[in-house]
């Protein structure tokens, strides 16, 4: 997206904040970078706090509220992953899915905290989609060996369609996330730009609750779920827990 300004002070695109030169190219420090840095720092600090709480835990005493919350979160992610990917291979992916879940949740909700959602930038979602793509094919070759490639040519004349279908997976994954978050961002920006000052105190709260929190949570769930489903498809068929 360009750096257009819309309706006076309202902007829906990614805005460059700081311009600098790198290897002769003009590069911008955009709002996406700032949002992602803040979110990563938040997650890092939370992780350090949890780590400290876990290390200081005393098994003879009752765990505190913070430690209990962290344990519930980890257990929920484990249950979610194992339930969808099977108990045999699922455990190896719980860390990735958990990280993805926390990061996407915070970045989809960034609008509530006054940031521009990093996931409303196609660069971010495409990177996440490509991660899923590489996970699918790495695990496919690892578990099914050559069959992973030859199954594309099973009915030989359908091979082009199957290959396009494989390439469409990361594209549709990333476009789905990007489109949903961007449409929320655009709608909220339009409402902020169009409404008179008085109504701005009340009305956007409902829009933020629906578009940022609810829709963001649903899209986070869907992205993690689809990643798990696609990766779990590559496991050996003998794994009956799928």
């Amino acid at each position: 997206m360009g750096t257009e300004r819309f309706a006076g002070e309202i902007s829906i695109g990614v805005n460059g904040v700081l311009r600098y030169k790198l290897f002769g190219q003009e590069v911008f420090l955009t709002t996406t970078h700032i949002g992602m840095t803040l979110i990563t720092l938040t997650l890092l600090i939370a992780a350090l706090l949890v780590n400290r709480a876990v290390r200081r835990a005393d098994w003879r005493k009752q765990p505190g509220r913070f430690l209990n919350g962290a344990e519930m979160l980890v257990e929920a992610v484990d249950r979610f992953t194992l339930g969808n990917m099977g108990t045999e291979h699922g455990g190896a992916f719980a860390n990735y899915i958990g990280t993805l879940f926390l990061f996407l949740m915070l970045s989809n909700m960034a609008g509530v905290f006054g940031l521009r959602s990093p996931t409303a930038d196609y660069g971010v979602t495409l990177a996440l989609g490509l991660l899923t793509f590489f996970l699918i094919h790495y695990n496919g070759i690892r578990y099914q060996k050559a069959k992973h490639v030859t199954k594309l040519f099973r009915p030989f004349f359908l091979a082009p369609i199957q290959i396009i279908g494989e390439i469409a997976v990361p594209l549709s994954l990333s476009l789905r996330l990007f489109g949903n978050v961007l449409s929320g961002t655009v709608l909220i920006a339009l409402v902020y730009g169009l409404l008179p000052r008085v109504l701005l105190l009340v009305l956007p709260a409902f829009l933020h609750a629906y578009l940022d929190v609810f829709s963001g949570a649903v899209q986070t769930y869907v992205f993690c779920m689809l990643t798990m489903v696609f990766v779990a498809q590559t496991f050996d068929r003998r794994d009956e827990t799928l």
Binding site: S172, L175, R176, F178, G179, N180, L182, S183, V218, Q219, V222, L226
Partner: peptide, 12 residues
């Protein structure tokens, strides 16, 4: 969410 994808292509 999967059904929504085609609408999002139009949005893009």
């Amino acid at each position: 969410a999967v059904a929504e994808t085609t609408g999002l292509y139009g949005f893009a």
